[in-house]
C-alpha cells in the first residue's frame, strides 16, 4: 500500500448542524443525477439515535478488527439505502389532474428512505434528545474498500488521499460495498459499477471546497489538509483534540472528524434544569466516537465557559467560524469564477 503524500480531511461540528440537508442536495445536484444513481446520496444527514442510512448500517460489518483482519460483512440492499421514489408529477402537471389529485408516490408504498426516522431520536420526555449526523465517504487512510477490491479498481490519490473508484476497472463485484464499514459505497445497478463520494475532487483541483461544505448554511464543515498547521483541521483534530473520527474501532483510520455535540441539560424530577447531567448520555457518544470523546466534551465545555467569561477562546472562535473563508484551508475560490471539470462517470463497455 503506497501512502498518499498529503491527506485532505473534513471536520464537521455537530453542535451547529441544523439538519437542513442543504449539503445532501448540493451533492446530489452536482454528482448523482446519471442513470442508475437515482437512489444515491453520497452525502446523507440522519437523526441519531436512529437506524441511519442505509438502515442499520452499523450492524452490517466491514472494516477491520483489532488484529487487522477483515471483519465479516454483508451487502446493503437498495431498499435499505432507500430507493428513489417516483411521484405522480406527470399526471398532475401535464395530465390535467392538477386540481383533482394530490401528489402521490407511484408504485409500492415505501417502507424505508434515507431520512425515514428523522427527528425521532432517543430518550424519554422530558429528557428526549437527538442530533444530526451528516456523513460522506471518510476517505480513510486504511481504506477497507480499496483493500477489498480484487481488481485494484479503487484508488487513493497520491497528492491528497481522496478515494475514488476507477470505473473502467470496476466490474461491479461489490466487495468494496460490503467491506466499507460506513456503507458509503453505492452500486449503480444500470452501469454495474460502484460509485461514491469523490470529495468534489474536480472542485478541489481548482481550489474550491467540496459543495457540501461550501453550501452549508450552518458553517459546520471545515476542509483542508490534515497536516496544515495554519488551518482549522489540524487545530481542531491535533491541537485541541476536539474532533474525532466516527467509529474509530472500525479500523479504517477515517479522515472525516466530528466535533461531538454537547446537547442541552437534563430536567430533574421537578422540572428544574439539572446542569450536572448531560441529556445526551456519555455512553452513547463513547459508542460513536470512542472514549476520547469525553475529553473532547470537557475541552469544549471549558472553552465555552472561558469565552463566556473572558470573551476570548481560540477554539470557540474557530468553531464559530466568523469568516467562512477561514474554514477551508485555502480552498476558498469562487466556483463561478473557475472552470470545474465535469465527470464522465463510466467509459461505455
Amino acid at each position: 500500500m503506497t501512502a498518499s503524500k498529503r491527506q485532505l480531511a473534513m471536520v464537521m461540528d455537530l453542535n451547529k448542524c441544523l439538519g437542513c440537508h442543504t449539503c445532501s442536495i448540493a451533492c446530489k445536484t452536482l454528482w448523482s443525477k446519471d442513470d442508475g444513481m437515482e437512489y444515491m446520496q453520497f452525502n446523507t444527514v440522519n437523526t441519531i439515535p436512529g437506524q441511519g442510512t442505509p438502515k442499520d448500517w452499523e450492524t452490517m460489518g466491514g472494516g477491520f478488527d483489532a488484529q487487522g483482519n477483515a471483519r465479516p460483512a454483508r451487502l446493503p440492499s437498495r431498499k435499505e439505502y432507500g430507493d428513489a421514489w417516483q411521484f405522480s408529477h406527470d399526471e398532475l402537471y401535464y395530465g390535467g389532474r392538477g386540481n383533482s389529485r394530490h401528489l402521490e408516490i407511484k408504485g409500492d408504498t415505501p417502507e424505508w428512505g434515507p431520512n425515514w426516522d428523522e427527528d425521532q431520536g432517543g430518550g424519554v420526555f422530558p429528557n428526549a434528545y437527538y442530533f444530526y449526523l451528516p456523513r460522506i465517504c471518510n476517505h480513510c487512510t486504511h481504506a477497507a474498500c480499496k483493500e477489498a477490491c480484487p481488481r485494484g479498481a479503487i484508488e487513493k490519490r497520491e497528492e491528497d488521499g481522496i478515494v475514488t473508484v476507477n470505473e473502467d476497472r470496476c466490474r461491479g463485484y461489490r466487495f468494496c460495498q460490503a467491506a466499507c464499514p460506513y456503507k458509503k459505497i453505492y452500486f449503480n445497478h444500470q452501469k454495474h459499477v460502484a460509485q461514491k463520494c469523490i470529495f468534489c475532487f474536480p472542485r478541489i483541483d481548482e481550489g474550491v471546497a467540496p459543495a457540501c461544505a461550501r453550501q452549508c448554511p450552518g458553517r459546520i464543515r471545515f476542509v483542508g489538509y490534515r497536516d496544515d498547521q495554519e488551518a482549522p483541521i489540524w487545530k481542531l483534530v491535533d491541537k485541541w483534540k476536539v474532533a474525532l473520527p466516527l467509529h474509530p474501532e472500525y479500523g479504517t483510520d477515517p479522515n472525516v472528524f466530528y466535533v461531538p455535540p454537547i446537547g442541552p441539560a437534563m430536567f430533574d424530577g421537578s422540572g428544574d434544569i439539572d446542569e450536572s447531567r448531560p441529556r445526551i448520555p456519555d455512553e452513547y457518544l463513547v459508542g460513536l466516537f470512542g472514549p476520547k470523546v469525553l475529553d473532547a466534551l470537557a475541552t469544549i465545555k471549558a472553552e465555552r465557559e472561558k469565552k463566556r467569561i473572558t470573551g476570548k477562546s481560540e477554539l470557540m472562535d474557530l468553531l464559530i467560524a466568523y469568516e467562512w473563508k477561514n474554514m477551508f484551508g485555502g480552498f476558498d475560490k469562487d466556483p463561478s469564477k473557475v472552470q470545474v471539470a465535469t465527470i464522465q462517470w463510466t467509459r461505455k463497455r
Binding site: A70, P72, A73, A144, A148, P150, F175, A178
Partner: peptide
C-alpha cells in the same frame, strides 16, 4: 489464491 483479505474472509 484470492487477491484480497476481504475476499478470502468472505
Amino acid at each position: 489464491l484470492q487477491p484480497t483479505l476481504a475476499v478470502r474472509a468472505a
